[in-house]
Design a binder for these strands. Sequence first.
DNA 1: GGTTAGCACTCGATGCATTTGAGTGCTAAC
DNA 2: GTTAGCACTCAAATGCATCGAGTGCTAACC
Lengths: 343, 343
Amino acid sequence: MNDNLSERSRQILEAVIDDYIRTAEPVGSRTVTRRHGLALSPATVRNVMSDLEEMGFLSSPHTSAGRVPTDKAFRFYVDSLLHVPAITENQQEEIRRQYQVPGRDVGEILKETSKILSSISNYIGIVVAPRFAANVFRQIEFVKLFGRRILVILVSESGIVQNRVIEAEEDLSTEDLVRMTNYLNELLHGLTIAEVKARIVREMQDEKVRYDKLLSRALKLSEVTLEESAADVFIEGQVNILEQPEFADVERMKEIFHTFEEKSQLINLLDCCMKADRVNIFIGAENFLSRMNQMSVITASYASGPNTLGVLGVIGPTRMGYDRVIPIVDYTARMLSELLGRE
Amino acid sequence: MNDNLSERSRQILEAVIDDYIRTAEPVGSRTVTRRHGLALSPATVRNVMSDLEEMGFLSSPHTSAGRVPTDKAFRFYVDSLLHVPAITENQQEEIRRQYQVPGRDVGEILKETSKILSSISNYIGIVVAPRFAANVFRQIEFVKLFGRRILVILVSESGIVQNRVIEAEEDLSTEDLVRMTNYLNELLHGLTIAEVKARIVREMQDEKVRYDKLLSRALKLSEVTLEESAADVFIEGQVNILEQPEFADVERMKEIFHTFEEKSQLINLLDCCMKADRVNIFIGAENFLSRMNQMSVITASYASGPNTLGVLGVIGPTRMGYDRVIPIVDYTARMLSELLGRE
DNA sequence: GGTTAGCACTCGATGCATTTGAGTGCTAAC
DNA sequence: GTTAGCACTCAAATGCATCGAGTGCTAACC
């Protein structure tokens, strides 16, 4: 396929995309000449648009309805035409201001983050909570509850807390628990969670430990707690999508909200971006969630020091204002990293 | 207002309500005679229905469209006509089965609960997380993070964990933290959180403590952590509402989803039920959330022993199957109490 | 007097033909 | 290569007649 576009073709394509982003309506040849001071007649533009359609950048819903940019066009736009500006002072200010609620736990910060993303972008904000595995172990605690129930609390360097209530097989005294705590904290100090897991397995085979019931029980309990639970995800601003004219149809709405109830799929999608460059963009059908074929996702990962913790992003219609949203996502990710990081 | 309904009026009202619950369409006089073996002609039924309209139990959308039960009718239905059956074996089984996912923290159990409520009722499930204040103090822990950040973890009897990251005013050594922990755990043992708060205030005025910087700092930290944060709420199954024909309209949908983004209002609403009888029902406009005027809420509170912890419920259209949903809500609340309780 | 059959009337929903207008594609002239 | 001109297309809007479920009223019936 020959995608070498002439300068003029690019201009016209950009004009169509710009217009479509603004109006969500198919764009006709006249509109292009009128709104973008091109010294060309509609007829000429039509010819060019016809070529662009041939090449797969445009498509027409029906014969007499103007043309709409395809996913391919948006991809080209994002890769080649788009000039992403730096984030404005105002937006920075706005984001900082919204973070200015003091004294909260990590979960609240993440929820707040997705609210910020949604309210500033006017689309949907999404934040996938840190994968515990990416973290550095800090401390483990056992708290005795009623009966044989034990609450195991696991804390990472960045202050992320994971806890589970576990039914122990036999009664454990408070002293037992203290001993277990000390043993484990010593053993696991400074390891990443991934290393912790390996270490536990190794330690369980150690002669000395195998004969100390308490220790091996401690290992078992911590192993259970470490089981990766389904990652939490915070989604805010779903109503914003209802304001988009292209979704003002009951059937499509159902589709979309179904997608958002199936959070695991979304998590999978975002997880792919954990290792990618700073900002990642999926356009329309590129993100293999068939139900999201009219939507784009802009993601960025956040980190604490060298450890990538998780991913956040904005979900909007394919025709979203990429130039406006990309800096927002990027900056918010950096802010969140700062908040969770070591400073 | 004279609401003494004759037996026949009641039968007809019930027939209209039943039919409306099934179809979501205005009910005409013929339908009433046809589907409910009443030995009456449509004309007679019309007369009665006219009376019922007069009394405010029915209303007609327009002249030739049959009649629709009003909120008042549903209130009467729930209070006087409805015979709530016991929960079926199958449903019990289903609920138990869905709870059968082991080893999770309280948050996950609550989320699961709202999923259960939604999937079994086919409406929206909602669970308000336990108000920490209603709980009995179990343990406090301080974990040193990077720099001056300290993670404070508060655990209640029922295994509910509340945590906050706090920026301390000066460096605290690990030993300091251990001393603080021991002091507080001793001081606060066995009190309810409400009592804990009072105790902290009192203790801060104690001569001995005022001169021990470490102790007073410990009290301050715990005080900050105890600040009631916005209650968490878990809402699941919002898509279910999209299936209801009476909401198959873009404008109304927007309304509804707006309501669900404003979680604080929902929490307020449910909080009112904390102290009420087992099952509580709000019909339509009765729940002062103007945006929810076409919806009903069925709630029940859950507890751990004598302490009411929180509220859960199902939100559906006013015409929901009350007889089906009430036992589900009731039973789920009991199950959850059991899970969180002391057994 | 309550009940019912009969009938005129109402009003949204449905279907169909017509019009409108934005937009295209093609051709011929510039 | 560009453009004016024109026939053509097609969704959307408009107008209009029809349909039918349902009502309210009246007069007859038991």
